[in-house]
Amino acid sequence: MSYRSIVWVLALILLVPIAVFLIYAFAQGWFFPALWPERWDRALFLRQLADPQLRRAFGQSLVIATGVSGLALMLGYPAARVLELQAFRGRGLIYGLFFLPTVVPSVATGIGLNIVFLRLGLAGTLFGVMLVHLIPVLPYVVLTLGSSLARYDRNYELQAAVLGASPWFVFWRVSVPMLLPSLVVAGVLAFLISWSQYVLSLLIGGGQIITLPMLLFSAASGGNQSLIASLSLIFIAPLLLLLGLVARYLGSPATGATPRP
């Protein structure tokens, strides 16, 4: 099978569910023997969009995922830098520890942390939910940044320093542009993972913080297919928008090189 046909098959696998959501979200009076819905109606979808509870959940999810991306980059960048650019004893072990959250079930960490967060007064707060999202998010951020730092030539930074650039200037004017593609990819990954968190948000949010996946989950157990489909569309829309915006960085592997304009 040629490369091109593989791409088409993959695209189809990814696009078909979205098409199904679209059909279910806008179909009206679609009963068994009919091959096609009787009529199309935007009313349910628009009602969903106008629902204050959904708007609130959408906003909170957005704030959480954006905050988690920012926090994950702020914590993940220095971690990846030290792990990739410095040689020290126990480096492999620490790298391994960073990946532990990907194997430990989040229910286990969530329940344990729930008690700790209650004591710290972080349970039921937006910040608490952001912090707990960092657990599944950080490994991917460190891995993404680490793999591009492994091929990163620090001499660009040293060259900038001897030319008179302060460490802050070097960071913003050299390191960030050099590593931009992988910073973008890591940030997007962090956003995606945080956006679709359910268990951890539920355990730490304690019913005070309602995110989009929670609404989706309760709708899914309700069984109203039109409702599930419109909520799903609302759920994936920002992700598609985000991926579209950063598409030019996703194509180039995280080499630390900037894409040509």
Binding site: N155, Y156, L158, Q159, V162, P177, M178, L180, T258
Partner: peptide
């Protein structure tokens, strides 16, 4: 210091 490689910033 001028290195062996020019290290011009590609961006």
């Amino acid at each position: 210091l001028l290195f062996q490689q020019p290290y011009l910033f590609p961006f």
